[in-house]
């Protein structure tokens, strides 16, 4: 028998209906069918999941891009502001120093003015009525006594006369009557200071002119 014949016969037999494995085939059928359906569902589910994941990724990427853009803009603005601040810093420092100096000098001036004002604001002397008293001045001569103790036995000197003693005392008091003793009346002849006299004011009899 030629190989070709063998192949032909076997091909023919294979295409015929035969009951080989029929039991196993029938037993496996429900399982195979359910598995096919499960795989189909799984396949669809995977497709949906993949689509959902893709959509989520797209959304997230969009959100991230937007956030990045916003952040970029904010950073640009901030850097511009920082540059601006840095540029104006020196000038502002200078101006601040000037102002500080001005404030110091003004504070000093204010202190001076305050002092002046406080001086000015001290309580003014209230106007009072002035009473002018014309008083009669009475000079009381303080008699100066000089006590001399003589020892007759030791000295031959004679005691000085009373009149001579007074004449010797002062020229101003010449007018004074030596006999009146203690009371000296004003002479109005001399304005010179007389240190040895006591000035006594008697206000009780003075007249009020004003």
């Amino acid at each position: 028998m030629e190989p070709f014949d063998i192949d032909r016969i076997i091909k023919q037999k294979a295409s015929e209906f035969h009951g080989l494995h029929q039991q196993e085939i029938d037993a496996a059928k429900p399982f195979v069918w359910s598995e096919i359906q499960r795989k189909e569902r799984t396949y669809l589910t995977w497709i949906h999941l993949a689509a959902a994941v893709l959509l989520l990724m797209l959304c997230f990427s969009m959100i991230l891009i937007n956030i990045q853009k916003k952040h970029g803009k904010e950073i640009e603005n901030l850097s511009a502001k920082i540059d601006q601040i840095q540029n104006g810093y020196a000038a502002q420092t200078k101006a601040l120093n000037i102002k500080t100096n001005q404030i110091a000098s003004l504070t000093n001036k204010q202190a001076e003015l305050n002092d002046k004002l406080s001086e000015q604001n001290t309580a003014p002397i209230p106007h009072r009525e002035r009473f002018v008293y014309h008083t009669d001045t009475v000079f009381i001569k303080q008699v100066q006594y000089i006590t001399k103790t003589e020892k007759p036995s030791e000295s031959d000197e004679q005691p000085m006369e009373k009149e001579a003693f007074f004449e010797q005392k002062t020229s101003d008091e010449i007018a004074i009557n030596p006999k009146v003793d203690d009371v000296i009346f004003p002479s109005y002849q001399s304005q010179e200071k007389q240190p040895e006299t006591l000035k006594v004011k008697f206000g009780s009899f003075a007249s009020n002119r004003n």
Partner: peptide
């Protein structure tokens, strides 16, 4: 040498 007739007479299930 297997005769073609013998193979033909065999059951398909046996050949498979």
């Amino acid at each position: 040498n297997l005769e073609a007739n013998a193979l033909q007479q065999m059951q398909a299930s046996d050949i498979l």
